[in-house]
């Protein structure tokens, strides 16, 4: 049963950059996961956190940015070490054909890579817009180049790689100027970025699927910790479409802490 915590062994560790590592492992349930689904990953004695599945196959993976206690503990794991997972949870992305754009911010790419792989296999035309803080934060650029047949646009806050500026602004400029006829926009990244991307997509009448994040406890839709608008990120999401996103007035404005208090973003 997917809700039972099961140990998996680290088969390989890939250092993506100075603060991001990918941990590869074998797991039968993850093998059957859909792109966009996530796991609750338990690092014994530290914490249990939601992480997107960043690779689906004989070897599966989670890709982790070092941002806090749990992810730091995760980064100490070596080949042969074990950690616990439960899941896969959530709905995942709906895969459509045609012409699509991927808009990703930083580690948000982790949720999107398995999707890009599938879309590529089904001969979609894919444009990718990806933003990083700076050149040293960039990862998977080569990987993406191999997977896509459309345009790859990179931006950094300081201009050290690609265009200087926020990727949401770069994306907005591009769609305003060229009015590409995207069939779907897939996005994952910081909530403020997603808010902006969604607002611009609405203006262009694009369909959107956004993978969102929130503080999570149960992962099975009962505790309410991960609520966004009337939705539970863990079990109604983490991927939401236009109608749902419209009902999340707080998206990118505030998030909720473990005590349910609003924290401005």
């Amino acid at each position: 049963m997917k809700n039972v915590r099961r140990p998996v062994e680290v088969e390989a560790v890939v250092e993506e950059n100075f603060k991001i590592k990918t941990f590869l492992f074998k797991d039968k349930l993850c093998f059957k996961a859909r792109p966009g689904q996530f796991l609750m990953v338990w690092i014994v004695g530290v914490d249990e956190i939601p992480l997107s599945i960043s690779r689906i196959g004989d070897l599966c993976s989670v890709t982790v940015a070092k941002v806090g206690e749990a992810t730091e503990a995760m980064h100490r794991l070596k080949v042969g070490d074990r950690f616990y997972i439960r899941g896969p949870y959530g709905n995942g992305f709906r895969e459509g054909g045609g012409y699509v754009a991927i808009v990703a911010g930083g580690i948000g790419l982790a949720a999107l890579l398995p999707l890009v792989e599938r879309l590529n296999a089904s001969n979609c035309k894919i444009d990718v817009f990806i933003g990083f803080r700076s050149k040293s934060d960039a990862f998977w650029v080569d990987k993406l180049t191999g997977f896509i047949n459309g345009k790859l646009t990179i931006s950094t806050d300081d201009g050290s790689l690609g265009v200087k500026g926020l990727i949401s602004e770069v994306f907005r400029g591009y769609v305003k100027n060229f009015k590409p006829r995207y069939d779907m926009i897939y996005t994952c990244g910081p909530p403020a970025m997603i808010r902006q991307v969604f607002q611009d997509c609405k203006k262009m009448n694009y369909k959107v699927q956004a993978s969102l994040e929130a503080y999570m406890r149960c992962g099975i839709g009962i505790c309410g910790s991960c609520c966004l608008g009337p939705y539970r990120v863990c079990s109604d999401g983490p991927v939401f479409s236009n109608n749902q996103l419209t009902k999340m007035s707080e998206l990118g404005i505030y998030k909720r802490g473990p005590d349910g208090l609003k924290i401005p973003i």
Binding site: R5, E48, R217
Partner: peptide
């Protein structure tokens, strides 16, 4: 109250 850290649930 923040409540306890995870894990907080077992099925």
């Amino acid at each position: 109250r923040e409540g306890y850290p995870n894990p907080t649930i077992v099925d």
